[in-house]
């Protein structure tokens, strides 16, 4: 599903060239779950961005379903994202002017899917927010907002879901519930899951882990605990 070969990422700063990622090699099969772990500044989010086609490596290739997205321009990568990719973010990224229902329906509407609102409603019911569809993000707790974000991500039926610290802004109890929901939905939908996290318990629930330190792989595709 995803093939990563010799990824390097460098940025030029006023203090010289900074190596964010070095020689990353990775393969993720369809339906697998992978946790990218490591300390802050180790390049986890940068790698996630490159895998999702949001960012470009300085060298190396990333192929999704055999298509080399690093050889594409932004429009080409956008087309790949539209067909394959969904996201869940640490800070939820719900649009404050839209209700929960509209937030979930928006990507569906942009894709031109019929009955976007009906589909959105079904997914909100699946995450337990069937009674809160008309509520705005400010009227929802952090956990509820992340559940809306999960509904939004899964409603588009992505082949790959990228999650960036999905419980990073939540307390432990709420985070656990969100994790349960994330993995339940992932199992039901058969989605490939790649997430970035600091949490060992969350990483442990993934099929594989990739640990980064100072931009390098220190643990190659570790077995699940």
């Amino acid at each position: 599903m995803i093939e990563v070969s010799n990824i390097n990422k460098q940025v030029v700063t006023s203090e010289g060239t900074l190596n964010i990622l070095q020689q990353i090699n990775l393969s993720v099969a369809r339906g697998e779950s992978l946790a990218i772990i490591g300390p802050s500044g180790s390049g986890k989010s940068t790698l996630l961005g490159i895998l999702a086609g949001l960012d470009m490596p300085s060298s190396g290739t990333v192929a999704i379903d055999g298509e080399d997205i690093t050889a594409m321009d932004e429009e080409g990568r956008a087309a790949v994202r539209a067909g394959h990719v969904g996201f869940v973010f640490q800070s939820f990224h719900l649009l404050p002017g839209l209700t929960a229902l509209e937030n979930v329906a928006l990507p569906l509407e942009l894709q031109g899917i019929d009955n976007a609102l009906q589909t959105a409603r079904q997914y909100l019911q699946r995450v337990g927010l069937g009674e809160r569809v008309t509520h705005y993000p400010r009227q929802l707790s952090g956990g509820e907002q992340q559940r809306v974000a999960l509904a939004r991500a899964f409603a588009c039926r992505p082949a790959i879901l990228f999650a960036d610290e999905p419980t990073g802004n939540l307390d432990t109890g709420t985070g656990e519930k969100i994790n349960d929901l994330l993995f339940d939905l992932n199992a039901e939908e058969g989605t490939t899951l790649i997430l970035v996290t600091h949490e060992k318990t969350l990483a442990a629930r993934c099929g594989r882990r990739l640990e980064l330190q100072a931009g390098r792989q220190v643990e190659q595709l570790a077995e699940s605990a």
Partner: peptide, 15 residues
């Protein structure tokens, strides 16, 4: 800005 960034992450083209 956030809305447009989301749009583009969902694969909506600049045009």
């Amino acid at each position: 800005l956030l809305q447009v960034a989301l749009f583009k992450s969902w694969g909506i083209s600049a045009s």
